[in-house]
Design a binder for these strands. Sequence first.
RNA 1: GGCCCCAUCGUCUAGUGGCCUAGGACACCACCCUCUCAAGGUGGCGACACGGGUUCGAAUCCCGUUGGGGCUGCCA
Length: 467
Amino acid sequence: MSAVAPRVRFSPAPTGYLHLGGARTALFNWMFARHEGGTFVLRIEDTDAALSRDELVDGIQRTLRWLGIDWDEGPHRQSQRADAYRAAASRLFAAGHAYFCDCSRDAVQARTTGESGYDGWCRDRGLAAGVLRFRAPDDGQTVVHDVVRGEVTFEHTTIEDFVVQRTDGSAVFLLANAVDDADMAITHVIRGEDLLPSTPKVLLIRRALGVDEVPVFAHLPLIVNEKRQKLSKRRDDVAVEEFRERGYLPEAMRNHLALLGWSPGDDREVMSIEDMVAEFELADVKASPAYFDVKKLDAINGEYIRALPVATFVRESLPWLETDPPWPPERFDLAVFEAVAPLVQERARTLAEVPATVDFLFLEEPVVDPVAWDKAIGRSPMAGALVDDAITAYRDCHWDTDELYRVTAEMAERHGLKLAKAQAPIRVAVTGRSVGPPLFESLHVLGRERTLERLQRARDCVPPSSS
RNA sequence: GGCCCCAUCGUCUAGUGGCCUAGGACACCACCCUCUCAAGGUGGCGACACGGGUUCGAAUCCCGUUGGGGCUGCCA
């Protein structure tokens, strides 16, 4: 491609959080830059005063870092480059490429034709104030060369005289975008497909400003919801921060995002970021929209969780165990959690699932799943006898996993039951649930005393007739 | 309405004219393993939107139709 190292930018509007589409766009820009040995620029598009708040920008940076996406330049703030945009606007006006317009919103509406929008009524009125509109060419066409979409042609007759500067003198994103990409020598514009229709306008501005170079464009397919619509804040869960809070690992998030619209070309899916960077090519990006499937994210996240060193898993789980836990905080015992961590790790798809898997260890009394209780104890004719036997056997046996297994298996045999059946009431009595970590390890960690207490309590609840 | 984009299993995708009776992954189902649940293993279900071309040959190229989507703001 180009002899010079590419320069790309991720230029989000600060809306208070980083959404999935933005994260994917950032990731693709970043992977491209790293693959090509180029420069990744972070630029905040906050020309709208309402968006120009520091905390909104901080959130984006924090989330990008969480995802492992770092930048080489910036963050540049468009809110701080007003002078450059004003100068550019003046040049457009002076050269006759733009004119002022004082049409009200209603007037513009009235003058909007089906084919090409605003009809340019103010073009020759010689106004000196108002919004500044770009004088779109009346004929000809602009061709956008797009790496993922090929050549896209826009007839100039379909491009209206669009606004480049607001009444208050601030630049609209089209202008700011054109000026910044030129000033920052951006070579590849990689962004969402929703920006494709605005591309000829930006190109027109650049040309009017005397910029000859044209960046390479790559319009990425949209990420859509189950109804195949562009993800929106209102109706969809789109904040990356929220996925973080739901217990997803950044590596899994990043991996899944990378697979939306791109693949390495073979059967690999779960792969390291290094491998993704090594394989990433803009030309391999697909053109069709992709649905963000949380089920698949869950599966990928589970794989990443299982691949963690146990100590890392414990550390990553801590926020979920210490912040607003389902048990009294003082009852939590890190050593106990560490003892069962490998068993929990094997089963968790998200870190958020961890507390409920181990809550029986830290609660005075376990959370009882009524359906499980009813099935394993309430309506089980053998439950009373099994629990009685367990109490007897567990009172005197060696308190270790193998021994617990052995005496329980013996007990099952005495009753002519499979161990799977025989352990059910014990599990529910002690953990409150029918599913969970392996039972005998759980009992071992819980301790004899508390195990017996819970079994006795369950025994007291069993109707006499059932024993 | 106008302009533009898109179209392979339910989903994410491989496929760039013959290797395709279309491969993988997630999800789902069955079986195996097994103290529950997971994990793992095996197998199953399941797609080239439709119609015309081009070609010896089309999921792959072209045209049309249909369907979906994006844009159409003094938001970006």
